[in-house]
Design a protein around this nucleic acid. Sequence first.
DNA 1: CTGAAAGCGCTTACAG
DNA 2: CTGAAAGCGCTTACAG
Lengths: 345, 345
Amino acid sequence: MPVTIKDVARRSGVSKATVSRVLNNIPVVREDTRRAVLEATRALGYTPDALARGLTTKKTRTVALVVSDIRNPFFPEVARGVEDLLNNYNYNVMLCNTDGRPEKEEAYIRLLLEKRVDGIIFASVKMGASDLSRLQKRGLPFVLAGRTLPGADADVVVVDSVLGGYQATMHLLQLGHTRIGYVSGPAGVSASVDRHRGYEQALRHNGLDPSPELVAVGDFTQEGGYAGASRLLSLEKPPTAIFCANDIMAIGALEAIYERGLKVPEDVAIVGFDDIPFARLRNIQLTTVMYPKYDLGAIAARMLIERIENPAPDRLAKQVILPPRLIIRRTCGFHLGRSTPGATT
Amino acid sequence: MPVTIKDVARRSGVSKATVSRVLNNIPVVREDTRRAVLEATRALGYTPDALARGLTTKKTRTVALVVSDIRNPFFPEVARGVEDLLNNYNYNVMLCNTDGRPEKEEAYIRLLLEKRVDGIIFASVKMGASDLSRLQKRGLPFVLAGRTLPGADADVVVVDSVLGGYQATMHLLQLGHTRIGYVSGPAGVSASVDRHRGYEQALRHNGLDPSPELVAVGDFTQEGGYAGASRLLSLEKPPTAIFCANDIMAIGALEAIYERGLKVPEDVAIVGFDDIPFARLRNIQLTTVMYPKYDLGAIAARMLIERIENPAPDRLAKQVILPPRLIIRRTCGFHLGRSTPGATT
DNA sequence: CTGAAAGCGCTTACAG
DNA sequence: CTGAAAGCGCTTACAG
């Protein structure tokens, strides 16, 4: 019933091979036979079967994007960057939500392997470096986007989180804060660890000793930000400013602060990280460190395509480090134009 | 190099057919041969090739989700619902952003046809009913999620937008408003038209005549909401309340209101539609009509799978209408507990 | 319960 | 410039 290359061949009076050639733009074909084939293709409404093609070419032109949860506002931007770039090269993207759970991730990997995707972009990874190298051995290209994995010899694109953490903290220091809290992401995650590092560097550059009690462990969720900030605020000497390792946690932190009847930024200043869309809302105006999310996705996609179309197994892993950029809005209190934060209450 | 079913067959001393049978859980196989095959599968690290399988079975177990832009916060929730349900049935989801542009949509359709996806979920459609029926003739199942298309004889799941619009408007009326504006979506889009209808019904039920000057045409974007609300606010007799056809536009409307130095809800009350995540943020507290987005996706996915796995071409189109639910927060002014809105300034 | 064979719809050397 | 043939890796009647 459905029309195949055979039908087109018959109708245009040539062989399947020739049809295949014109459809794949292999330039040898004579112009008039080319036209005849195209005409037959149109007339029959022929749609090539990508499965059959893939079976012989070993290419599917589809790529997987692994995220923890697309509902996390960080990821849609990344996904869009990925897809837009992929489209330019005629690739499709398969969406994989893992909730950061290793079993889900594994299940997906298995599935993706079966479906013969050409490559994977991990915007979230739970596997260890060793599992990833298994992928490499299987010959499945991948790139890490927004995460690094110690020991993984893989293509990576990330923002410079150390620098970003430094900028955020430095800004608060310049506004006069000396007790600055940090609400981290999950332990061991590079983005969180690096931002912590930048935070400590900034403190030290200002002659301050990082104090462990000012660091609360979060998890990149709003609830985590709420809990982390709550802990910091109930300190005997609470911080006058809090740097949150991402914006969602900053939102949670805002909740915690308001709940105590405190004001932002008058009582507590807040700086986040990522610049997710609602950070700029008039009623939020979150000061934060811009993560070029769309670019992250687009660059990751480009790197992946490069790997796919030019497979040199011994090629060195490429690392792209994007610059962070501090975006000053209201929650840091910059507009207050003073340098005695927390002293006004 | 890569291991195929043939290798497994050889190693376990059976035919490819038998290997296929155990891998597909066809119960006829004797237990010990079954075990031998499984053992060989594991030992060789065999991964079935879904392309080859698909080529013979005519099933890919992948489904496409078409959205206008995943960065629109409405869609990630839908996508998650789709994916979660699909996963239960061992399907994958391909993400397709069209920006609501017909060329992009067409290009994707063509691609999806080539890739032999088993079905499509349209959370956004630009094609006309006639193009969709072409899909039907091609035998490609699809369902419309959140949109209806007049004349399209297709499976559909939507929220009752007439009722939702009615609830939103009725609520404002009960708070004492009599001049209520409406910022619509794009002309012709069912969600917008229906909400408008509900809005007018509510007005009439209260003996009010809908006034055309109180309706501004928007487009479901923040900018559209800003522009629409701006127009309403510069009326000689501006409305004291505005119902926006979706939450993003409500955000834009808030901007417009604040920009004029007006207060929400004291000067202008606002009600949105969708209940996207940030509507509930402490600093926003948008009163809105809940759209069960996750369920929308999950139900659409279930309907699609049903169509796919049980293809009766003459089966009647199914319509699922979800109930909307008014969520009262702050922007409507309910908490003010009075009934003379707009009269306090 | 199992196997041999055909077939799914392409692409790609190989010849000419 | 074009075609015949093999092959990609599965599944599925059909026989036995």
